[in-house]
Simulated scan of single mutants.
Amino acid sequence: MTATWSTVDTPIGPFTAIAADDGAVLASGWTAGPDTLTPLIAATLRPAGLRRLPDLGPITRAVQRFHDGNLAAIDDIPVRQRSGEFLTHAWDVLRKVPPGQPVTYSEYAALAGRPSAVRAAASACARNAAALFVPCHRVVRIGGALGGFRWGLDVKRWLLAHEAEAAR
């Protein structure tokens, strides 16, 4: 399979998405190209080749609209990730965390049905290949500390502030 990719400018830097033929996001994040994203895609989903497009249609529009304040714009974009049963379920749960209402890693573990699996919940965030569309930035430490984020704490801070402001 050959996947397509595109980069769009956002207020917090370039954002690149890689999409399957059917329009599902395979990987995405705040980077200027696909090189850092491709290794994040599960081996069984990793494309044999990549083709750059100026625009990925609904994906590009959703990224632009989200950054412009339409937080729901990302909700209907399909995402395809593969891993074990818990991680796959945990990524689905992340898509249901409302913008402007971050949860702690402990709360996230409970939402995913395994309240004692806080480390596994944190691992789901760390292994998430489809940043923004699977909003792992909405998970914080107890007390509100940011925790980690593959794309940097400045990006996570901006996203949380943007969502808090737009959700008002």
Rank of each mutant, 00 (worst) to 15 (best):
V134D: 11
T2V: 10
G69C: 08
L45P: 11
L53E: 15
G57C: 05
E107H: 03
V8H: 09
L153P: 11
G29I: 00
R52L: 03
R61T: 06
S106M: 02
A20D: 15
D35F: 01
R65H: 04
T60A: 06
Q101H: 12
F86N: 10
A110M: 08
P99S: 12
R51Q: 10
A48Y: 08
V139E: 10
K96H: 13
G29W: 00
A166N: 10
A121T: 05
T4K: 14
P102C: 12
Q101Y: 11
A129W: 02
G69A: 08
L53I: 05
P98Y: 11
D76A: 10
L132D: 08
S116L: 10
P135L: 01
A117K: 02
L146A: 03
M1E: 13
L160N: 13
K96E: 14
A43P: 12
D21I: 08
S116D: 13
D76F: 07
T38Q: 11
A122M: 15
A145K: 14
G144K: 15
A72F: 02
R168Q: 11
A129Q: 05
A43I: 12
R138V: 00
S6Y: 02
L45Q: 05
A42Q: 09
I59V: 07
F15L: 03
T38N: 10
T7V: 00
T60V: 04
T88H: 05
A161V: 14
L87V: 10
K156T: 05
F66K: 09
W151Q: 10
P54G: 14
H67K: 05
T31D: 13
A17E: 01
A166Y: 13
P58L: 02
D68C: 04
R80N: 02
A130R: 08
T44R: 11
